[in-house]
C-alpha cells in the first residue's frame, strides 16, 4: 500500500509540468510584488515543521539511540540502558542471519520489481488501445492494491495452503504433486514473492499507462506507414520513449519493496527458519515478533535498512532532477 506516495514525485516531472511551468514566471514576478510577509509563510508551514520534528525526527533519533545502547525491556521503561557504541551493529553484521536476510531481501526485491514491471508494462500496452470495457477493466485492476495488505496476505496464505489450497488442487489437476508453499524452506520465499508481485502490478500498470499516454500517437502512425509491426513498434518506440518513466517506476518499486513487512509476516513470519526473512522482517521479528523483544539489534538492522533505502532514494532523486532539467 505504501507504494503510492512517491508517485507524486514521479508525476511531478511529467504531468505536474503543466502546473509548474506557467507558475514559474509568475513566481518570479511575485518576489518583487509586495506580497504577504515571509512570516506568513513560516506560520503556514509551522504545523508541518513541528510535525516533522516531533513525529519524524524524534522517533528516528530515538531509533539511533536504541541501536547504540543495550536496551532490554526493563531498561526501556527505566531509561538506564548501557551505552555500547557500535557493538550492536557488529553483532548484526556477524550474525549468521545477516547474509541470509541480505540475500533474501535482494531476491525478493529484484524478482518482485522485475516481474511487476514487466507484467505492468505488458498490461499498460494492452490497455492503451481502446476497446469496449477497457476503462472499466483497467479500473478493476486497482482492486488488489486498495485492499488492506493483511487481507490480501491472508487470502494468499489460504490459497497456498498445502492441503486445502486452491493453488495445489489446480496444480494436482495437471499432475503436479503437493507443494508445501509456505512451510518448506525451498518455496517460502517464492510464495511471498508471488503474492508481492500480484500486489505491485496495479501500481506499475497505472504509472506506466499514464507514461504511455504521453507518447504522441503520430509517432506510431509514422512507424506503421513504414511497415513496422506491433512488436517492432514496441521495441523501437514504446520502450525507448518510456525509459525515463520506467527507470523511476523501477527505482520506486525497489525502495518500497525493501520495506515490505506485512505480506511476509502474515504469510510465513519470515520462516521456516530464516528462509523468507528479509532485513525488514528480521528487524520486526527482533523487536516485536517474539515474546522477548530485543530492541537494540532490531534498531541496528532497521538503520542498516534505512541506509540501503536512502542510497537508492538519492539515486531516484538524482534521476528525477536530471529528467526535470532535460
Amino acid at each position: 500500500m505504501t507504494t503510492i506516495p512517491t508517485a507524486v514525485g514521479t508525476s511531478r516531472d511529467r504531468r505536474g509540468v503543466a502546473g509548474t511551468v506557467p507558475a514559474t514566471p509568475a513566481g518570479r514576478r511575485r518576489r518583487h510584488a509586495p506580497g504577504p510577509s515571509r512570516w506568513a509563510a513560516v506560520g503556514f508551514a509551522a504545523p508541518l515543521l513541528v510535525y516533522l520534528a516531533l513525529f519524524y525526527a524524534y522517533p528516528l533519533w530515538r531509533n539511533i539511540d536504541l541501536s547504540v545502547h543495550d536496551y532490554t525491556i526493563r531498561a526501556f521503561v527505566q531509561g538506564n540502558a548501557e551505552f555500547v557504541g557500535l557493538e550492536k551493529y557488529a553483532e548484526v553484521f556477524g550474525s549468521s542471519t545477516f547474509p541470509a536476510a541480505l540475500w533474501n531481501t535482494a531476491v525478493f526485491t529484484i524478482v518482485s520489481i522485475v516481474l511487476q514491471y514487466s507484467i505492468g508494462l505488458a498490461l499498460a500496452v494492452f490497455f492503451r488501445s481502446s476497446f469496449r470495457l477497457s476503462a472499466v477493466l483497467r479500473g478493476m485492476f486497482l482492486v488488489p492494491w486498495l485492499l488492506p495488505l493483511i487481507v490480501s496476505a491472508s487470502t494468499w496464505a489460504w490459497m497456498l495452503n498445502s492441503d486445502n489450497g486452491i493453488v495445489n488442487s489446480v496444480l494436482a489437476a495437471f499432475g503436479v504433486g503437493q507443494i508445501n508453499w509456505l512451510t518448506s524452506p525451498d518455496t517460502a520465499l517464492l510464495a511471498v514473492t508471488i503474492a508481492n508481485i500480484w500486489l505491485g502490478i496495479p501500481f506499475n500498470l497505472v504509472i506506466l499507462y499514464s507514461g504511455l499516454q504521453n507518447i504522441p500517437g503520430d509517432v506510431y502512425e509514422a512507424a506503421s506507414l513504414d511497415g513496422a509491426g506491433a512488436w517492432k513498434q514496441f521495441w523501437s518506440i514504446t520502450f525507448p520513449l518510456l525509459r525515463p518513466v520506467s527507470a523511476i517506476t523501477l527505482l520506486l518499486g525497489l525502495i518500497y519493496t525493501l520495506k515490505v513487512v506485512d505480506v511476509i509476516w502474515v504469510m510465513t513470519t519470515g520462516g521456516p527458519g530464516t528462509s523468507s526473512t528479509t532485513l525488514a522482517i528480521w528487524s520486526y521479528r527482533e523487536a516485536f515478533g517474539t515474546g522477548q523483544p530485543d530492541f537494540s539489534p532490531a534498531a541496528a538492522v532497521g538503520n542498516v535498512l534505512i541506509l540501503i533505502a536512502l542510497v537508492f532514494g538519492f539515486l531516484y532523486l538524482q534521476l528525477q532532477r536530471r529528467q526535470e532539467e532535460s
Binding site: T6, D65, L305, L310, G313
Partner: peptide
C-alpha cells in the same frame, strides 16, 4: 508564499517517504 528553504523541505519530504515503517514503529514505540 515563497517559503524560505522550500527546496530543502521538499527534499526532506521525499526522503521521509523512503523510511521503512518498521523503523518508524520502533522509534514510536520507544
Amino acid at each position: 508564499l515563497n517559503l524560505r528553504g522550500r527546496r530543502t523541505l521538499n527534499f526532506v519530504l521525499l526522503v521521509a517517504q523512503m523510511i521503512p515503517a518498521v523503523v518508524m514503529a520502533m522509534g514510536f514505540y520507544a
